[in-house]
Amino acid sequence: MNTQTKNNYKPNYINPYLGGVLLGLLVLLTVYITGRGLGASGAVKSTVVTTADAISPTLAKANAYMGKFISGDRSPMYNWLVFESLGIFFGGLLSGIIFRRIRKPWVEHSPKITSKTRLIFALLGGIFFGAGSQFGRGCTSGAALSGSATFALGGVIVMLTIFGTGYAVAWFFRKLWI
């Protein structure tokens, strides 16, 4: 019988250096096959453009930013990063099944804050990350990881500013985490 309780549950993650080697090889393989690296925020952008186009095509096309991503013949969802991000979800699911980490929907948070606080800041964090990724031409995957790995100046700028800012403001958000 399984006597493990929720409190002494110890997640069995893979060795981080092994994870890093696998991720690096995946970036290399992806660049070798497609000529480009990985990404994630691009799929959300496609979703924003698609829903805006479905709700109000005229407004979406007139929008100076979204209009760039709408073409007459194909949906913006017909995009490499959308399919890749779908894969990210299923890959996470597969790992969750193998390592037994799938649970009924729950909110993970530090015991010092409530679920509500966690969710408010998760939403705010998402809004900031979403908007920032548009200025940065990509997020941690597309710009910081794939950009830096291909020696792109922009990738290194985004990587350094994300992590640099993170350390600079960590003190202000410490109550959320420790």
């Binding site: 979800f89 996470g92 705010l124 964090g125 800012t165 958000f173």
Partner: peptide, 26 residues
């Protein structure tokens, strides 16, 4: 963009790709 994402990282604790896998496991 990097500065805004840095704030987002500290508030949200995820980046886009990692949040998708968090959804995967509930």
């Amino acid at each position: 963009g990097g500065v805004i994402m840095g704030f987002g990282f500290l508030m949200g604790g995820f980046c886009p790709g990692t949040s998708f896998t968090a959804i995967s496991i509930g």
